[in-house]
């Protein structure tokens, strides 16, 4: 792809974004909308700069919870998937509970967890992990099961050991599924972290971006609320891009989903 083609892909959405921000700014000024109702972009930016140290600290707290929860989900989720695949009985015994974990709304259990777990950080990580782990478990399990019949026979013919089959066949076959799960899990871990902070924040026991939003709301500092919201969104986008980059690194050379049509 040459520079011109790249620009053609990147420029239109950027242009749209700039136009929206300009229109937003102009409308706020033209109708003199008070900033405690709906702040203009300039007010949001000013608040972002003025409260930079508080907001960046809150961002760091939220990012930390998100990343730790995501890492735990990856490690524990794949571990559970491996165990499920090794033994159908274990899977049948435990999978329903994994589903219960998934379908119970995190907002509903978060207060309980925050009461039960003394350390707030641990409670937040716990909440975010519960919500992020399911897509990793289910996708990786399916991936480890989805082995091409011909490939399986190929390994049988060559007397591959169970360990060899796992390393050279099952894990690579499962990677596309795992990364699809990771994409969902990365978004969910951030959502989990923010939701849990909201719940903890109402009790004054948090310090992340959700807490900033709550505080700003109490004090009618709406520009600051927008600034915190902006940082959460940026975090989500950054996570998405990192996961997309990792997926590209792992699959770009061979997987159909990553290959552009060359016709």
């Amino acid at each position: 792809m040459n520079l011109r083609q790249r620009l053609l892909i990147v420029l239109p959405p950027i242009a749209v974004g700039i136009m929206i921000v300009i229109a937003w700014e102009l409308l706020c000024r033209a109708y003199e909308v008070p900033s405690y109702l709906f702040p203009a972009p300039s007010a949001v930016v000013r608040s972002l700069v003025e409260n930079a140290s508080d907001l960046l600290f809150a961002l760091w707290m939220t990012v930390r919870v998100t990343l730790i929860a995501l890492a735990l989900s990856i490690v524990l989720g794949t571990l559970v998937a491996f165990i499920f695949v090794q033994s159908p009985i274990i899977e049948r015994s435990f999978f329903p509970y994994a589903i219960i974990l998934q379908v119970t709304p995190i907002v509903a259990v978060a207060p309980l967890i925050i009461i039960l777990v003394k350390n707030t950080q641990v409670a937040l990580i716990f909440c975010a992990t519960i919500i992020a782990i399911f897509p990793i478990i289910s996708n990786t399990t399916i991936g480890l099961r989805t082995i091409d019949r011909g490939h399986r026979n190929l390994f049988l013919i060559n007397h591959a050991s169970r360990w060899q089959s796992l390393c050279y066949l099952q894990i690579p076959s499962a990677l596309p599924f795992f990364f699809a799960g990771l994409r969902v899990a990365s978004g969910l871990s951030l959502i989990g972290a923010v939701v849990a902070e909201f719940v903890a924040g109402t009790g004054g026991r948090s310090a992340g971006l959700a807490f900033e939003i709550l505080q700003a709301g109490y004090q009618l500092e709406i520009p600051r609320m927008f600034a915190a919201l902006f940082l959460i969104t940026m975090t989500g986008i950054a996570l998405f891009l990192v996961v997309a980059g990792l997926t590209h690194l792992a699959l770009a050379t061979w997987h159909d989903s990553m290959i552009k049509r060359e016709t």
């Binding site: 011909g150 490939h151 190929l154 007397h159 050279y168 061979w254 997987h255």
Partner: peptide
Amino acid sequence: PTLLPWRTVFENVYLPLKLA
């Protein structure tokens, strides 16, 4: 052909030896 799509042609042919 049942080639492993994540491996190169060389690695695919090498596979039986690798497994051995």
